[in-house]
């Protein structure tokens, strides 16, 4: 894809539920905002119009692996066409809590063909930096299970028929997703962060990588100078 007319930078975070990636991208966002940089934050599965349909599909358990994949890609496309790309074109640093790799990992685990899923997303630019928060399965599951009383049907991967017990299904599902992520580390050049470390140490490492790879001065708001 031609990047010459895209002056902005795209930073994505990926990882299992409970890997702490949302905390880390939040801290990164605060650091950049307070430093006076042009930043925009976007989250997976949050396009207003599409989200309504997704919610309905999930609630009524109408989704198959194929429609699950397509509806999330539609949501992504809406945010991509109307926000992510225009902001990148306008010279912003865009922070994405989950990006196409979430779909690659989840939908392939659900049984969609990898090439088919990748083709769906090939309209979108790849991130300049993708942080992968690598956490042992037990740690991620422990964090999720202690914070929430019950797991939702699709969240637990119940549609895969791995187990009738939601907790066991979730564990098996997350384990498979983790394997898919690990397969992508080299292919897409993820920056791997050890998510078992204390929050502060992870954030130090994140900021270090960002400073190394992005000339941040180019993204300062003019009024701040």
């Amino acid at each position: 894809m031609d990047r010459s007319n895209i002056p902005g930078k795209l930073i994505a975070v990926e990882g299992l539920d409970g890997s702490g990636k949302s905390t880390q991208i939040y801290l990164l966002k605060r650091w950049l905002e307070l430093g006076g940089y042009k930043v925009f934050f976007t989250e997976w599965n949050s396009s207003v119009l599409v989200k309504k349909a997704t919610k309905k599909g999930k609630k009524r358990q109408l989704l198959t692996p194929t429609t699950f994949c397509l509806i999330h890609c539609t949501d992504f496309a809406d945010r991509y066409e109307r926000q992510i790309l225009p902001l990148l074109r306008g010279g912003y640093i865009v922070l994405a809590d989950r990006y196409m790799f979430t779909a690659f990992a989840r939908d392939v685990t659900r049984g969609c063909r990898p090439e088919w899923v990748k083709n769906l997303y090939n309209f979108a630019v790849k991130p300049d930096i993708t942080f992968f928060f690598n956490v042992p399965l037990d740690v991620a599951i422990g964090r999720i299970m202690s914070g929430r009383p019950s797991l939702k049907y699709f969240e637990a991967g119940m549609d895969l028929g791995l187990s009738n017990d939601p907790a066991e299904s979730f564990r098996l599902f997350q384990g498979k997703i983790r394997e898919e992520y690990l397969r992508m580390v080299d292919e897409y050049g993820f920056s791997v962060i050890d998510a078992a470390l204390p929050i502060e140490q992870q954030q130090d490492r994140v900021r270090e990588v960002v400073t190394e790879k992005i000339d941040l001065d180019a993204y300062l708001r003019r009024s701040k100078k």
């Binding site: 119009l49 349909a53 397509l70 539609t74 809406d78």
Partner: peptide, 26 residues
Amino acid sequence: LVSEELEQAKQGNILGPITLSLFYAT
């Protein structure tokens, strides 16, 4: 799954072309 939302989107003419394609595909 999505026919209502699709109809709404068409009325408002608010979706980008790729989004609309994917909505129809869904």
